[in-house]
Design a binder for these strands. Structure first.
Lengths: 175, 175
DNA sequence: TACAGTGTAAAACGATCATTTTACATCGTC
DNA sequence: GACGATGTAAAATGATCGTTTTACACTGTA
């Protein structure tokens, strides 16, 4: 694995488990198995490293949510949690830690969430026979967001609950 | 207002707007209008101050959610966001910043969420004619959690969406 | 009037932080 | 075989962190 990839991967892991600010550069260099000089050559700064991590996270998230049904969307979330654990949305956590005060991070969060909402609108449209239904899409988005948050303290079963609720709402909209 | 109350109130405001770690003791003393010596006499430490803030937050949250219908529950959330803004659940944010590594904080989060879930179970039971329905309660919890999270980037309207979705689920369960 | 309680202002503490620097090793390539 | 790129190890930098300390002022009460 190439150096920068290894760095971003180690950083994502530590940021996710212990938080962004709580993770110092010494922990990062140690986990990535490289000197701080190499780390700074590749990342530039801690803030830049955070944005790299978020970009990588977004890429992987989009890849995993290439689905065309609400069932599959929540299935993808279940799979995500099974593989990566449930510590809440890393984008919202980054936003929360910085109070939305760092533009680079705030932008990354908004872009990620906008793309999620668009994806859900796409799926909802497919499910309801091509109809444009932004309100229903927002409800599914809220279930997705809520399942991610609730899974932190209630475990992966909350995703099943959300999936069932989403199915009911879709069914209701078809009638 | 007494000194400790003023301190906790100022601390809650700063923690909520800028995050826990990002808020230094100098900002806290300045905002609370007191010397660091007085702050430490009343709070003991920053970590203790955080738990005081969470306790006060929990008290106010419970007071505001003394309701007996799902409609009123989401109405209370709308009111909360209107008055206090929408920067996400402060408990989950505290949990996220510390990675769940600090027991005092992790416990406060779990207790707060457990009490929220119990409250929702109560309301759901009232709404469905005394029936015990933990699955439905979890779905409402997820909508509540999701609305709180989504409001960070989509504004207060997401709470309306969640309220409507919750009504549909309740209606469905009554049939 | 003496005193305990509660406060301020500001310096000092040691630790930790992100970042930079110095000095040196390895390796593929022209 | 010189060289530029890429790496390590480790010390130094200056800032900032949470916390403690020193020295002093005000206030109500016995």
């Amino acid at each position: 694995m190439d150096t920068k990839t290894k760095l971003i991967s180690a950083a994502e892991h530590l940021f996710d488990r212990h938080g962004f600010t709580a993770t110092g550069m010494d922990k990062l260099t140690q986990a990535a198995g490289m000197s701080s000089r190499t780390l700074y050559k590749h990342a530039g700064s801690k803030m830049a490293l955070i944005t790299y991590v978020l970009a990588e996270r977004h890429r992987r998230f989009q890849q995993r949510t290439e689905v065309d049904s609400v069932e599959a969307l929540f299935g993808a979330l279940e799979e995500w949690v099974r593989v990566e654990g449930c510590r809440g949305c890393l984008f919202l956590r980054a936003h929360g830690e910085t109070g939305g005060d760092i533009p680079k991070i705030a932008d990354a969060v908004l872009a990620h969430k906008a793309s999620l909402y668009e994806k859900i609108q796409e799926i909802v449209s497919l499910e309801t026979g091509g109809k444009h239904n932004p309100e229903l899409a927002e409800q599914i988005l809220i279930l997705f967001e809520g399942a991610t948050a609730a899974a932190v303290y209630r475990g992966a079963e909350s995703i099943t609950s959300a999936r069932i609720a989403a199915s009911v709402l879709i069914q209701q909209a078809r009638a």
